[in-house]
Design a protein around this nucleic acid. Sequence first.
DNA 1: TGCCTCGTACGATAAACCTCGTAGTACGGC
DNA 2: GCCGTACTACGAGGTTTATCGTACGAGGCA
Lengths: 114, 114
Amino acid sequence: MTPPAASGRDLPHPVREEIRLESVLHALSDPMRLRIVRELAAEGRELSCSDFALPVTKSTTTHHFRVLRESGVVRQVYRGTAKLNGLRADDLDALFPGLLDRVLEAADRQAGRV
Amino acid sequence: MTPPAASGRDLPHPVREEIRLESVLHALSDPMRLRIVRELAAEGRELSCSDFALPVTKSTTTHHFRVLRESGVVRQVYRGTAKLNGLRADDLDALFPGLLDRVLEAADRQAGRV
DNA sequence: TGCCTCGTACGATAAACCTCGTAGTACGGC
DNA sequence: GCCGTACTACGAGGTTTATCGTACGAGGCA
């Protein structure tokens, strides 16, 4: 297992049991972060931070990714100079079945409603 | 319809179409407010603010109910000296099907996991 | 009328949050 | 070794937030 060690430093992630519902909801309650999560879910694969064309600076982007990581919504792994972000859909679904899907579905609906 | 006019002043509520997913998630991301919503859902009926034994002062309680009302999560109606709070489960379910239920279920699970 | 209860309004405080800019580190390629 | 790319760290500014305390208004009841 453990592919090619992903090269380099590790980032602190909460383990599955440490993920708190309140933190997840808070992480998803910011428009920028919800957008990130939606894109991640739509793409269905890991994306690097720079794949997102967000209307904020890089520092702010870093901040949002950190919130998402610390709340347990995404997993971040260094891969050379890039940092790949993946949705922790498996962990979230194990803890809170169906929650993520409903949020994504709700976001889609709302986006369509505008 | 409109029972006995509920006596007195009205409070500003967002209409169904104005309810924003981000606001709802934000409202639910506070432990005190999530607790209120869970109690409301468990009880299945309208409750007055004083029915909740929250570990905060009355002013703070008022504040949290206001956030819940302005985000569209609860509906508040005056009834004499009391103010009844009801979950807007119908509106939320119409906008974001299944979302509220999953959040409540997730909260139950998490409470049980502790 | 007067009082009690329920809830609001307002002000204050301390913490958290979103945003930015600048400076810095890690990695890969020339 | 040197440079560019990708991201981080730190600090700052301005807004929002959660909390409190005190003072006030509205409604029921004696």
